[in-house]
Design a protein around this nucleic acid. Structure first.
Lengths: 329, 329
DNA sequence: TTGAAAGCGTTACCAG
DNA sequence: CTGGTAACGCTTTCAA
């Protein structure tokens, strides 16, 4: 495999010094127009491209931001990414993304790979496994070296910039809405009980029904939830469902659909899904909108401020969710 | 901001030479166990982490593979990415992803950023804008430098490894199926007429109905397609629809649903969508399955062979699509 | 206007 | 077993 041509080789060919070539290519005022031209032509001819590694090593800056995400199947994380890109695209920075697939090991590896010189800063949503293991030393190691911003999947104990969603309130409000509409036997279903965001949402549910009704909570796999829910519906034990993630939302939807309790509103259902999916379900699903794009935009802007050194203390931002009423509630 | 500690600083603190530190940390046989231990402890204490930039520059290898994708909203590309990850995760390589959002400029920038030292090889699906502009010099520049593999969105004129989908045949077969079921006025709808894959699929449609029926082709935005289709259905001008991408598939679905011609099979519809979406539509949508994960797996394996230098000539692989029959056909 | 040399943080060869 | 030195490809200061 042919290697890229270097400044050194170019300088040999042109019979000038290395520094002259470097300066010419960087349009330095020190170099005469004629040599500049000569060198630039040769550079084009030989398809010279500066070695980024060397440039970055020399300058101590990479102008790239690393984004570490657990998954891109997750529509909310995908929206966050989109928001980040929108902001970063307008700056001199580039983005490189690393997907951990909810694995602790991959997350450690990703952070290591990125943090030691490859990027100027990292935006991370920690993986499920990391939240279970509660081992955050790979993130602690970054302190004071690579600026870190946590988004959505936060670790409280690490001091860094954070952008979160008001999970507790979002579900609290949604469930309250169900209550005020006369629902008095509301089940909560969750496939994300391992995640802090899942726990917060569950707390919001509990707070909303406190002293009013018994809590009915189903956690586990999509299949498990669908089955349990079908039974509860069959036995008329519930009149509403709060689903706190995409998988459980779709499981609940399927159960409700099969039992024919959605169209006639025998059961109210509020869930979390992408707009595309919720609008194409029949009936259209009422969801909690987390405004992922805005979360991403906010994160990127905050990180840019951090990189500009205008910030001192770590900053924490919370983005409000809203209920997007459709036809299942 | 505190900088990472370097070998040099460590050597000063420990009062040994730079090379001793380097060797000790790399477990060289040349260093005594006692000094090794002393140095490693200090390294841990000071949270030493090797500067990847320097290591890579020195070794001329990065052990990372760049994946340049136009979008991750596209479920097929997301599946490809998943496939790539599955294979690469088992190797010493890392993946970094760059999203171009279908923009030519961003693609050029991404390829530039990655190709000059940051990655050992690149997997790319070119952006829509690039296919329209037909300017591929940023990819040509890579020849012989950074191994390049094109996936799905191929540029024929660039010699490199390629993994494609049999777009022509996929649609040809699907439309033939519709014909054999007695549909004799089949419309094709497309939001991706700018893409080569879109053009191939359209050709497949034309070939299938040739000498049998007139072609009815609607291209454009999702909204446009939905409106036009609604009219054609209203006027009973068509009895089947072949939609060749997710957007047009959903537009067609909405039109068919509104006109109540889906449940009773007055209109047959075959489209392209993710499994999750197609299975949650009512009625469930018959789709063409492109086996994205397999495409990704195949791509990654091929690239690994290329990196192992066991290949000489560029290799081209085609993955067959299959019709996943559900309830709209 | 040009060039020599130091240095970014590593690794590796060769001497001692 | 340890240390000096060159080199990876580049930028930049200083001298010529």
């Amino acid at each position: 495999m042919k290697k890229n041509i270097t400044i050194k080789e170019l300088s040999k060919i042109l019979e000038v010094s290395i520094s002259t070539v470097s300066k010419a290519l960087n349009d330095s005022y020190e170099i005469s127009d004629s040599t500049k031209q000569r060198i630039k032509e040769a550079a084009k001819l030989y398809n010279y491209k500066p070695n980024k590694l060397a440039v970055n090593l020399k300058s101590g800056k990479t102008n790239t931001i690393g984004v570490v995400l657990p998954s891109i199947k997750n529509f909310f994380l995908a929206r966050i990414l989109r928001g980040i890109e929108i902001v970063i695209a307008k700056t001199q920075y580039n983005i490189i993304i690393s997907i951990t697939n909810e694995s602790y090991e991959k997350e450690v590896q990703s952070v290591q790979t990125l943090s030691n010189g490859l990027v100027d800063a990292i935006i991370i949503a920690v993986s499920e496994e990391t939240q279970i293991k509660k081992n955050f030393s790979h993130l602690r190691g970054l302190e004071g070296e690579t600026p870190l911003l946590m988004v959505d999947r936060i670790v409280d104990s690490i001091p860094c910039d954070k952008v979160q969603v008001d999970d507790f309130n979002a579900v609290f409000n949604a469930v309250n809405q169900l209550v005020s509409e006369g629902r008095n036997s509301i089940a909560l279903v969750s496939c994300i009980d391992n995640l802090n965001v899942g726990k917060s949402r569950t707390k919001g549910y509990k707070a909303a029904i406190k002293n009013k009704q018994e809590s009915i909570i189903i956690k586990g796999s999509e299949e498990h939830i669908e089955k349990e829910l079908s039974q509860l519906i069959e036995l008329q034990k519930i009149d509403a469902i709060m689903a706190i993630d995409q998988e459980s939302s779709l499981a609940a939807f399927r159960a409700g659909k099969k039992k024919k309790v959605l169209n006639n509103r025998a059961i109210s259902l509020i869930g979390y899904t992408s707009t595309v999916i919720s609008e194409h379900l029949t009936p259209q699903l009422t969801t909690i909108n987390q405004h992922g794009k805005r979360v991403g935009i906010t994160s990127a802007k905050l990180l840019l401020e951090r990189l500009d050194n205008v910030l001192d203390e770590p900053k924490s931002v919370i983005i409000n969710s809203t209920v997007q009423k459709r036809l299942t509630s």
